[in-house]
Design a protein around this nucleic acid. Structure first.
Lengths: 361, 361
DNA sequence: GTGAAAGCGCTAACAA
DNA sequence: TTGTTAGCGCTTTCAC
């Protein structure tokens, strides 16, 4: 029924060992026989049994990604990048949605970590101790863990330059004449929110006469922005920075509903540059985060961090098909990658109006 | 180092076979020993080796989902549903993004199909013959394939009631006084677009004086809608049905840019009810599709279609932890599931204006 | 460079 | 009900 390596070996008139080598470690076999075996394998439609190989090598050829919410445009974009890069390197990708629940995240990492060669975790809110526990006690020693958009201890991670994005946004607003700037933050305990608040403080210190108002913590969702919108209006700021685009979109919506004009009365800046940022009117000025690159970088880090990537995978793939896979393992990158961001100015920001305040009346 | 079943067996003073049974088929073991073995397994931190089990049982405990674009809100929502249901049934989920390329879809199905217990494929545009080839020649006989949002031959599938959604939309517009209705279609060859055109024809036949204008085929994206928007304005229709929300959003945007008011001059209806539909102003009247349910139903179908779900999985899980997994396999459902849809009226539709036409001038 | 043989960890006959 | 035995398909020493 199913073609096994023995079948190939027999048909090629070699031992199973040679057949195995011809496909998985071609260099060890004399060219003539190597060609022959590969030829026969192709003709017979041989498909190596992953389970058997995994049993002996300990490698699964799978990676896994755990995110809080697959439907969020932020994580969807990251997932897309992760998926693409994983495939390019010959890995399949297990994806798990933790439903915004840090406990479930930990459980999923434990569960899936047992059946993959590496784990990518994006958990904005898991506690540091839990993170420690995960990487120390839950995962096998040889299963590397890479953090996305979060830095912690010795764990490899890919993060974006949160502070710089905020700095760019603040400078943009400052240049437009804004002096009273509000910040609508993300959830309490969110790592990136902490980073951004830090960046905000520093950015504003360098500029004279700037007054930053902390509008509080909000769920990083449209609904959170609606609530934040009222605070924006009440606070008398002429511009507001939102923790992310969804929040900014909610603010935009609420302000319009209240008759506050954007950008004439208030300027709004988001973060992430999700697709929806350009679907609204006025289009959202925001900090572009190369989300897919974030995902790709995470995979690369994982592969570097892990036990040397089996040459087997790609060798076998090329042996069986005509495709050539360009496996490029970088050399000696540090355990943490910083991804740059860039402010993109659209229609939601404009010069500060003379009559600064739009306070409630 | 790693605890194997033999270790457990030895520590419990039973044979490996009994240990295996105590964990995977508890009913076959005397209560006392069963308890003992499970206890010992827990204490030793035994984790079954999936590869070894897979090698002998042929079951991987994994399902796989192939979609054209993980970042699209439509597929992201479906993926979320699939993921949740798969996990509830004890399966991990491999996810693959085919980058809108039917050829890549086929390749991915072939590649991943070899290492999973079932495949869920959402491919709006793969040709029927290719679909046949996939299920017949590419996949192993015992790897079931379920189609999402597409019906074909004998393959099990989960589809939404495309025609009914269109019907509801048309009736809504008709009730508002619209008589000249445009349809901005999806890509040529899209299965659901074909269905919706069919529904459109039927729905309009039943109503007097309704004139339907086919505005053509568009990429189901915001950009496609921008192009469609001009045709809407030029066509003189008072209302337009878009193939999906993204397209509708693009139309909305373009119409506003041209000074055509929505809904005063033209009413716009979308399809799918993606999150962004409520982020814009006016909020989009659209046909709500329960995307997550679509995904869940696909998993259920897969599990029913496949070889009897191993009791092993859940039994072992419950044996090793305190958690109880509620595996509920439905009984004798037909191979194809139809999911109902519902029009949700928001602000983008209104009564037809007297001066029907907004033709170019 | 090649083959023989052993065994990865587990389950499934078959006996007892 | 339990244990013994065999073997899933593959890789990998170890001889040659």
């Amino acid at each position: 029924m199913v073609v096994t390596l023995r079948d190939v070996a027999r048909a090629a008139g070699v031992s199973p060992a040679t057949a195995s080598r011809a496909l998985s470690a071609p260099d060890l076999v004399a060219p003539a026989r190597r060609e022959l075996v590969q030829q026969v394998a192709r003709e017979l439609g041989y498909r190596p049994n992953r389970a058997a190989r995994e049993l002996i090598t300990g490698r699964t050829g799978n990676l896994c990604l755990v995110v809080p919410d697959l439907e969020s445009p932020f994580f969807a974009a990251v997932a897309k990048g992760v998926q693409a890069r994983a495939r390019a390197l010959g890995f399949a990708l297990l994806v798990a949605d933790a439903e915004e629940d840090p406990r479930l995240e930990a459980e999923l990492v434990g569960h899936l970590g047992a059946q993959v060669d590496g784990v990518i975790l994006s958990s904005p809110r898991m506690s540091d101790v839990e993170l420690d526990r995960l990487s120390r006690d839950v995962l096998d020693e040889d299963v590397p863990l890479v953090l996305v958009n979060r830095r912690h201890g010795g764990l490899p991670s890919v993060v974006i330059d949160n502070a710089d994005g905020i700095r760019q946004a603040v400078r943009h607003l400052y240049a437009l004449g804004h002096r009273r700037i509000g910040y609508a933050g993300g959830p309490v305990g969110s790592w990136s929110d902490t980073q951004r608040r830090y960046g905000l403080e520093h950015a504003s210190h360098g500029l004279r006469n700037v007054e930053v108002t902390d509008l509080g913590h909000f769920p990083p969702l449209f609904g959170g922005g609606v609530a934040a919108g009222d605070l924006v209006a009440a606070s008398g700021v002429t511009a507001v920075l939102a923790h992310n685009d969804l929040l900014a979109l909610g603010i935009l919506s609420r302000l319009r509903a209240r008759g506050v004009r954007v950008p004439e009365d208030v300027s709004v800046v988001g973060y992430d540059d999700i697709p929806a940022a350009t679907l609204v009117s006025p289009a959202l000025t925001t900090v572009t985060v190369p989300l897919a690159r974030l995902g790709r970088a995470a995979v690369d880090l994982l592969v570097e961090a892990g036990p040397v990537p089996t040459p087997t995978e790609s060798a076998l793939a090329t042996a069986l098909s005509a495709a050539d896979g360009g496996l490029d393992a970088g050399s000696g990158t540090p355990p943490s990658v910083l991804i740059g961001v860039e402010l993109v100015v659209r229609a939601s920001t404009g010069v500060a109006s003379a009559q600064a305040s739009v306070a409630d009346g």
